[in-house]
Amino acid sequence: MREKGNRVLAGALGASLVVGFLLAPSMAAAAPTPPNPTDQQLAASRQQVAAASKLVGIINGQLAASQAALSAAQVQTEVAIEAYNTAVYLQGQAQTGYNNATRALKTVQAAVASQRSQMDHLVAATYMTGGANTAAMLMTGGNPANYGHELAMLDIVSGDQAGSLARLQQAQGKQKELANAATIALKATQAAASRASAAKNAAIAAITARQKLTTTIQAQQAVLNQRLVSAQRTAGLLRQARAAADARAAAARAAANDDDDDPPSSGGGGGGYTGGGSGSTIVRAALTQLGKPYVWAAASPSVGFDCSGLVLWAYKKVGIYLPHSAHLQYAEGRPISRSQLRPGDLVFWSYGSSWTSIHHVAIWAGNGKIIEAADFGIPVHKRSMYWSGYFGAARLL
């Protein structure tokens, strides 16, 4: 099991080193965005984003695998620690049993020794004074009248001492057996505790290594994510610059052809509206902002525009002050049909059936064209009207 875990850890470390090698070159300073990126530059930026995305995918997979292995290692470590705790507890119990058995054996041994000493003294006294009769005389203080009684007592005492000694010796043998069993149990639990300690230390070492690996992969993941964001940002700037250049070119062509910037015709059917007036002023004002970047919640030539921000700014040129909200701008005007559209009117798109779900607005420029700030990465531009998601039109003039 441990060898398998080591192989898994080694494999993960190897994979991490591969990614680490890919991360080794320092990131060069971002080059300035060209005013009109070439197709090759755009393609190269897409390839960089794809490569960075692939590396992020690899490192994310490695991190997921490492975190899963870390979770498994944590469980194994907890099991090993609890097994160690159990082994230490059992060792303590065995030690207590061993200590109790040893003390009990010593007590019995001391009692046996004391009883044996008393027997030895009695036997010695009997031998040295000429036998049991003399010993009995010694016990009576030399009074012959009590001799028979004391002689009987001497026999009883001697017999009791012998029985007591026999019982103590039997207890001593039993205590020796218990002490030997306690010794064997203590040695077994000590060995088990030693093995449990080794397993615990190995598990802790494995989880420490896994934690270090996971931390390393997380650091590499942060670097790769940063590289991906940088590549995406560069690609976005290149697309934006290219769209701005295309918009400038389109505006230049439109100005050269003088097709739409003069007082335009009415929208849907052509003809109808021929004067200058406020509508043309709004259209001309919006045309001056072609190529400006799309910026959320912005309504300034120095910053950029979102869709309702461009309308707000253009309408200020004719003294009309609108809220910075597409659906509120719709509510400010009066609804008109497609056939009634003329330059300066507003056209709206919605994701629902109510005016409260309007999410986009553009300025009708005439001849089927609109001027809009569409989305992030796409600068203000003029384009043909599209009807998908169209909600309706409103006139504020």
Rank of each mutant, 00 (worst) to 15 (best):
K382C: 15
S158V: 12
A43S: 11
V79M: 13
D259C: 09
A252C: 00
S357C: 02
I371V: 08
Q232N: 03
G14T: 11
G148Y: 03
R239K: 14
K106A: 15
G392S: 06
M137P: 08
D258Y: 12
Q67P: 04
R7I: 14
F21R: 08
S353Y: 08
T189P: 00
A203P: 04
G5L: 13
Q340H: 04
T208K: 15
D306P: 06
D258H: 13
G279M: 03
Y321G: 01
R338D: 11
Y315H: 00
A83N: 09
G148L: 10
L165I: 06
A73P: 04
S71C: 04
G173L: 12
E3V: 11
W387E: 10
A331H: 06
I207P: 06
R253C: 00
A179I: 01
G319V: 03
S350C: 09
I378T: 06
I217Y: 01
L151C: 00
S45W: 00
S280F: 11
A125V: 08
L168V: 04
A374S: 15
S302A: 09
Y84T: 07
A251R: 06
A50V: 05
G173I: 08
A196H: 01
S308V: 10
Q329C: 03
I184M: 13
I58A: 06
A222G: 12
I204F: 12
D262I: 14
A10S: 12
H149A: 15
G272I: 06
E177L: 05
A31Y: 03
A326V: 05
Q118T: 09
A247S: 08
G267Y: 05
